[in-house]
Design a binder for these strands. Structure first.
Lengths: 168, 168
DNA sequence: CTTAACTTTCAATAATTATTGAAAGTTTTA
DNA sequence: TAAAACTTTCAATAATTATTGAAAGTTAAG
């Protein structure tokens, strides 16, 4: 496999992985391209290399900035924006967890809390099953939330070695 | 909020959460419905309550069985299949992690391994950046894979208390 | 066997989500 | 201030993904 084949396959692979873990396919592809680029790229570079439109490139670069997965780099003597990826993948992972915790877990916890207050006959089979299910789920979601919160505060090796110790 | 409102909101919430964590919206909704149902439901019950077609109900129930998130229950004197959800949410979470590890992480690790073997000038800036990026990613993905592998073997409290100890 | 009860499949269609590209907006330079 | 260089927006459109429902398939009972 030569450089170009490998590059395309990498962008494709990273895009697929990203989209299955909650970041959009194109955003992950742009990130992949930036990851393997030794130098910062402009919007046009991204457009050319991924064959996407200006609007699309702009949108996804902006989203990457929002997620903290890429940074702007201004080159003196050039008015264009250039972009570089966060290349510490552990930091990338933590950043994604952090964003998704905020965007997805928090609203769910709020919704679940509300749901427990359902009015009705507390001895009804359905009512009991409902409150029980919601309470159980809330407990697990809270624990997952807690785990993610801790994970983003630990470094790469600490979390792995902590888990490992449990099996020594 | 009365029972029906709460039920609908719960199904909606669980569907949204599911779809953002990699299981299809409708599959998560069917699972939600089964979760709060005190008794096993038939395909028709699911069709009626979620207002979805027979084909769709069948497909999603089958997928839930595949993922190990629901079970068939046969009632004597009835030829229909009835379904109940796995109600231990920690088990549900572990099951989802297990399936996604198999379906998504393993293929990515294989692809990354292949990519490291890219042919070309090892001193070229691009080539070096590429191999470095792929190697870094592989390292983190392997660690995440390891962590998930351990997580699905631990019980609910062990993993949380292990993380907690690191902060005491 | 044959019929009835039920489940599965799949091509057509609908719904959703992503992408384009031209126009509007912004910033910088001279 | 004007014009050039660049970025952002957004309505139209394309691509993708999910859903339907009728037909085919399967299983069990009579």
């Amino acid at each position: 496999m030569n450089y170009h084949e490998a590059k395309d396959k990498f962008i494709q692979t990273w895009g697929t992985l990203g989209s299955s873990w909650g970041i959009s396919r194109t955003m992950a592809q742009v990130h992949a391209l930036l990851l393997i680029s030794p130098d910062a790229l402009s919007t046009e570079d991204v457009m050319d290399q991924l064959k996407i439109s200006r609007g699309n490139a702009n949108m996804n670069l902006r989203d990457l900035l929002d997620w903290g997965l890429a940074y702007k780099e201004l080159k003196s003597g050039d008015r264009k924006d250039f972009f570089i990826a966060e290349k510490d993948i552990w930091k990338v992972a933590k950043q994604i967890i952090k964003e998704r915790r905020k965007r997805e877990i928090e609203p769910v916890l709020n919704a679940l809390e509300e749901l427990k207050a359902v009015k009705g006959d507390k001895n009804d089979k359905k009512h009991k099953a409902f409150v029980e299910a919601v309470t159980n789920i809330e407990r697990v979601v809270e624990k997952a939330d807690f785990a993610f919160d801790k994970a983003i505060k630990l470094d790469e090796n600490a979390i792995v070695s902590a888990l490992f110790k449990l099996f020594k």
